[in-house]
Simulated scan of single mutants.
Amino acid sequence: MSRVLITAGGSGIGRAMAEGFAAAGHQVWVTDVSAVALADLPEGWRTTAVDATDEAGVKALFAEIADTWGGLDVLCANAGIAGPTARIEDIALEDWRKCVSVNLEGCFLAAKYAAPLMKAAKAGSIVVTSSTAGQYGYPNRAPYCSAKWAVIGLMKTLAMELGPFGIRANVICPGAVEGPRMEGVLEREAAAKGMTRDEVYAGYASGTSMGRFVEARDIANMAVLLGSDAARLVSGQVIAVDGHTENPDPKV
Rank of each mutant, 00 (worst) to 15 (best):
D54P: 01
D54C: 03
E55C: 00
A56D: 14
A56E: 14
A56Y: 03
G57Q: 08
V58W: 04
V58C: 05
A60Q: 14
A60G: 09
A60N: 09
A60P: 01
A60T: 15
F62N: 05
F62I: 03
A63L: 09
A63K: 14
E64F: 00
E64L: 00
E64P: 02
E64R: 12
E64S: 12
I65C: 02
D67K: 05
T68K: 06
T68H: 08
W69L: 03
G70Y: 07
G70H: 09
G70N: 07
G71D: 07
G71P: 02
L72W: 03
D73S: 10
V74G: 01
V74T: 05
V74W: 01
L75I: 08
C76H: 13
C76R: 06
A77P: 09
N78R: 12
N78C: 07
A79L: 03
G80Q: 12
G80H: 09
I81W: 03
I81V: 15
I81K: 07
A82R: 12
A82L: 08
A82F: 05
G83P: 04
G83H: 06
P84G: 08
P84N: 12
T85N: 10
A86G: 05
A86N: 14
I88H: 10
I88Y: 09
I88V: 14
E89F: 00
D90E: 14
D90M: 00
I91N: 09
A92P: 00
A92K: 13
L93M: 11
E94K: 12
D95T: 10
W96H: 08
R97L: 07
R97M: 05
R97H: 10
R97W: 03
K98Q: 13
K98D: 04
C99K: 03
C99A: 13
V100N: 04
S101L: 02
S101K: 03
S101G: 06
V102M: 04
V102S: 08
V102T: 15
V102R: 13
L104E: 13
G106W: 06
G106L: 04
C107M: 13
C107G: 12
C107F: 07
L109S: 11
A110Y: 10
A111H: 03
K112F: 02
Y113I: 05
Y113S: 05
A114N: 07
A115S: 14
A115F: 02
A115K: 09
P116A: 06
P116M: 09
P116D: 09
P116V: 09
M118I: 11
K119W: 06
K119E: 12
K119Q: 15
K119R: 15
K119T: 12
A120W: 02
A121K: 15
A121H: 12
A121R: 15
K122S: 13
A123S: 15
A123M: 05
G124C: 09
G124M: 10
G124R: 11
S125Q: 11
S125Y: 02
S125F: 01
V127A: 02
V127Q: 03
